[in-house]
């Protein structure tokens, strides 16, 4: 099965701006399905999908599962604990066993960068990367971009700043690739100890101060600060992080511009983002979650060989190519 996106979705680095727009456009008609009383269309009926989560995840796993079920796919969830992985099975053996069960797609979340590609290179099924180490999290990038596009329209020339731990963030990498390909201006803001040393070569602007970022940006994508970064000595404390880099109402009000606030979740309220910002008028954080399901439906549909122009029709019947291998 190879559709307009190729066999797999491993990251946004390898996609063109046109392919990204195609996914976003395909997501539009799927948004409406989730608003229905009966939230189900038969587009992927008969397809089997394995959600292979080697790392804990609530939001992403549930979002994928809803997307799959609303397209009528048969799904199986496998988590690392309680599976043969906890008995020491290697990733390559897991891959071969899945392949032997003749599944159609695998959604993989793994703590190792490159794990999704590793799997994709070894099995014929479509592979969707649901986050690999500190590399990429393409569907998160896509849902962030869809949310921005809903509010800002065409992103060409729009200014988006990603704030926080860029060094360890797969969300940051997918956002940088995706937004850049759509012509947006991208910046990052965070402590230098949590930025890659080679950040300048990413083609993004760097703000050392959050106030400057707020002044500059049309939207901030505020990343979660992982608490293990403090124990590893990257920054001294969550308290100081909030005082220097926290997105607070006071800072937003001092900025003159209208600004959107995104957060991939889960939030540390009072650390990288204050509650009155997260719950306030600038926040589009829950829109991101809603869009997550639609974007993942679009990715599943396109990878399964669905025709983008039939996505609207797929809401009623199957828009999938019939000549499947």
């Amino acid at each position: 099965m190879t559709g307009t996106l190729g066999k797999d979705l491993l990251g946004l680095e390898s996609l063109t701006g046109e392919q990204i727009r195609l996914i976003l456009d395909t997501a539009e008609p799927f948004k409406e399905i989730s608003e229905r009383a009966i939230k189900k269309v038969p587009a992927l009926r008969g397809s089997t999908i394995v959600n292979l989560f080697f790392e804990n995840s609530t939001r992403t796993r549930i979002s994928f599962e809803f997307a799959e079920k609303r397209l009528s796919a048969d799904t199986v969830n496998v988590s690392a604990s309680g599976s043969s992985v906890s008995k020491g099975e290697t990733l390559v053996d897991t891959a071969r066993n899945l392949e032997a069960m003749r599944i159609d797609m695998v959604v993989i979340r793994h703590s190792a960068s490159g794990a999704a590609k590793f799997l994709a290179d070894r099995i014929q099924s479509n592979v969707i990367n649901a986050g690999d180490g500190t590399h990429e999290h393409p569907t998160q990038g896509l849902l962030d971009i869809l949310t921005l596009r809903d509010r800002l329209g065409d992103l060409k020339g729009r200014r988006i700043c990603i704030c926080g731990d860029i060094l360890h963030s797969r969300v940051a990498r997918s956002n940088i690739w995706g937004l850049t390909k759509l012509g947006a201006e991208v910046a990052v803001c965070g402590p230098r100890s949590l930025l890659p040393n080679a950040i300048d070569e990413f083609g993004v602007q760097v703000f050392d101060r959050i106030e400057e970022a707020i002044e500059w940006a049309d939207a901030l994508n505020v990343l979660r600060l992982q608490f293990e970064r403090m124990t590893a000595g990257y920054i001294p404390s969550a308290r100081e992080y909030n005082r220097v880099f926290g997105v607070t109402r006071e800072r937003l009000e001092r900025g003159k511009r209208d600004i959107l606030i995104l957060h991939p979740g889960p939030m540390n309220r009072g650390v990288e983002i204050d509650s009155d910002v997260a719950d306030g008028p600038h926040s589009v954080i829950l829109d991101q979650v809603t869009n997550g399901v639609a974007v993942r439906m679009a990715v599943l549909y396109l990878l399964a060989g669905g025709k983008p122009e039939l996505a609207e029709a797929a809401k009623g019947g199957s828009g999938r190519r019939e000549e499947r291998e």
């Binding site: 680095e13 960068s113 500190t134 590399h135 060094l167 890659p196 040393n197 070569e201």
Partner: peptide, 15 residues
């Protein structure tokens, strides 16, 4: 190696 490639691949670099 630590550099742009390690930053893009999300692998920890050795300077």
């Amino acid at each position: 190696n630590e550099g742009i490639v390690s930053a893009q691949l999300g692998l920890k670099g050795i300077p």
